[in-house]
Every structure is written in C-alpha cells, then in structure tokens.
Design a binder for these strands. Structure first.
Lengths: 171, 171
DNA sequence: GAAGATTGATCTATCAATCTTA
DNA sequence: TAAGATTGATAGATCAATCTTC
C-alpha cells in the first residue's frame, strides 16, 4: 500500500556474485522484452502527449479516478494504481490541479488522508481522449498479439510483478 | 537506424474515434503488462543505481560497447541499441565521458560520425557489475517465467516492436 | 541540402527532509 | 511516534534549434 517504495530498499540479490549466465536464446528473449518495454512506453507516451497533452501516468490518474462513482481516491491508493511513488504522484497532482483536471480535499474522517477528486473538466478530458488511446493500445498490443497471447503475457507479467513485490516486501 | 524518432511523428491511429473497446479480460491482461513494465524498469533501475551508480541505459551503453572487439560504436548505432534517442544518448555519453567510462572520437573516414569508445575503466565498471545485474534479471524475470514462457514473451515482444517500428516508418 | 550529432531551455522524476494529523 | 502526504534541490529526458561534415 502507498505506491512504490524508495529505490534505497534492499537489493534483490544479497549474495551478489557469482552470476549463473543466461543461455543465448534467453538473452535474446530478454532483450526483446526490454526493448518492447522501452519502445512501447515511448509510443504510448507520445500518442497521449500529442493527442491529449497528458503523460501516460497523468492519463491513468484521471482514468483510475473515473472508475469509482465518487470520482475520488486517496493519494496513496492512486499512487499504487498508477504505479507511481507517492512523491511523484503528489507533484503530478499539483500540476493537474493547476490545470483544473483534479482537485484535492482532505478526508473528513481522518485528516491524514488527502483525497484526489476528478473535476468535470478532468472527466471531459478523459472522455475526449480515451477512444484514441484505447485504439492505440489495440493497434500496438492487442492486435499484434491476439487475445490468447495477450492473456498469456498478462499471466506472465503477473508472475514477474509478484516476484518484485515479494522481493521488496522482505526488506 | 539512428535511435528513436521524435515523438512528434504522426499518430498511429489517424482515424481516431470511435474506439472498439476491449473485453474485460483483455483490459486486465493489458493492465498487468503495463504494471509489469513500470515495476520492472523501476526495480532494475534501482538495482543498478544502488550497486553500480549507473542507470539502466548507461549500463547498456557500456554493455553494447563491450560486445564488439574494438569496443567502439557510432553514436547513432549505440542509440538504436540502447533504445535511446540520439539527443538523449549524446547527453548521457557526455556524463559518462566526465566519469571516464566512455570517450568520444570522430570517425577517421567520415567526420560526420562520432564514435563512442569504452575506456578501460568503463570496461572494469561493467565487468564488476554485470554479475549482480544478470542475477537480478534472472531472479525477477527468468526464474519466475521459466525458459519456455520467457521465449514466448520474447516472441510476443518482437511482434509488438515490429508493429511500432512499422507504424513509425509510414509517417 | 542532408545526415549525424550536439546544445540549451524546459519539464519531470527522484531522493531526502519535512510537515501534519492521529 | 508512525502513517500519509508534501516540499525543495538535484539530476535526467525531451524538444526544438543549431552545428558540422560530406
């Protein structure tokens, strides 16, 4: 809970050396995955920046707020959902607040919490730009893979995420 | 060739709306992939930063240079290999040059090219830090997936990359 | 003029320190 | 004092403009 921990958390591989090297085909596959991550983020960032004037994380902050009836979420919850650190989200929300897409309000019941609320204008922005973004995701990811391979990649991704979360937990 | 094009290149989805929405399971899978990309880059960046004082891209710049006998590559080639724009790579190499891990020299045959050369110190840095990095990749990616699923993900990644490159080519 | 590369201005992410409420 | 959140300083990425060599 509360977004990503700091990078100063303990190393995943305390023992360090020596490395068991990867096979040639494993290395090739990992490079493909690594390249995909770089290229795909770049392509999606670009599409959103051009069409909506929003970064990928900004877009998803609006999207995650729109999915609850109250259009409201705690900052820490929103950080977790957008894969951002709390610090990063706080800066980001400050910028979106200046653009009147989100506003902040303290939680009535417990003043330690800050709620981020999607404004009308923020919702309008999201609604206006969601179709083009979804089409891009479909075009670059869903169509080239097909449903079966996409689901398979999703399942594999979940195993990696679980490993990362597990490693950070035990620090 | 020549690293990544600018983000101002034409949109992937000229028609824009309307969007054909994704199924619930497709959305869930895409969110897993998206989250994996964010979490994994973050985890790998963190490991390298803590252990080696290098960013992921800086590490790979050194690694790509080490793989050729001359320890030398053109800037544009290195940009492509590290998935960085030429501008980003140029700034990055400037910083690594200050740390004496890479040096620049103009190509003798054609003065338009700049060659990036791995220094002894740069090679030493890489050799010192490669094992821990490979172990982290193994720990977070290869082991949770297993070789078969890793190769499958690599193949899927290649299809996505081909789609992105194809889309940018026709702009 | 075109390709490769660099530069400078601006914007964003990160880290560490701080602040607030309970 | 602990959890949630914010802030300020620094480092890095991006874009547009420029520079160099052919």
């Amino acid at each position: 809970m509360g977004g990503m921990p700091h990078r100063t958390s303990k190393s995943t591989n305390p023992g360090g050396e020596p490395a068991r090297w990867l096979s040639a085909e494993e290395v090739a596959a990992w490079r493909s995955v690594s390249r995909m991550m770089a290229r795909l983020s770049w392509a999606l960032e670009g599409q959103l920046q051009r069409d909506a004037g929003l970064s990928f994380t900004e877009y998803h902050a609006l999207a995650m707020l729109s999915e609850v009836p109250t259009h409201t979420r705690r900052m820490s919850e929103l950080a977790e959902l957008t894969n951002a650190s709390l610090s990063r989200l706080s800066h980001l929300v400050t910028r979106l607040e200046r653009r009147n897409l989100i506003r902040r309000e303290p939680d009535r019941d417990d003043g330690r919490y800050t709620n981020a609320v999607l404004t009308e204008e923020g919702l309008a922005q999201l609604v206006a730009n969601a179709p083009a973004h979804v089409n891009t995701v479909r075009d670059l990811v869903v169509d080239p893979l097909g449903t079966d391979d996409l689901l398979q990649m999703g399942a594999a991704a979940d195993r990696i995420i679980a490993r990362i979360d597990g490693a950070n937990q035990s620090s």
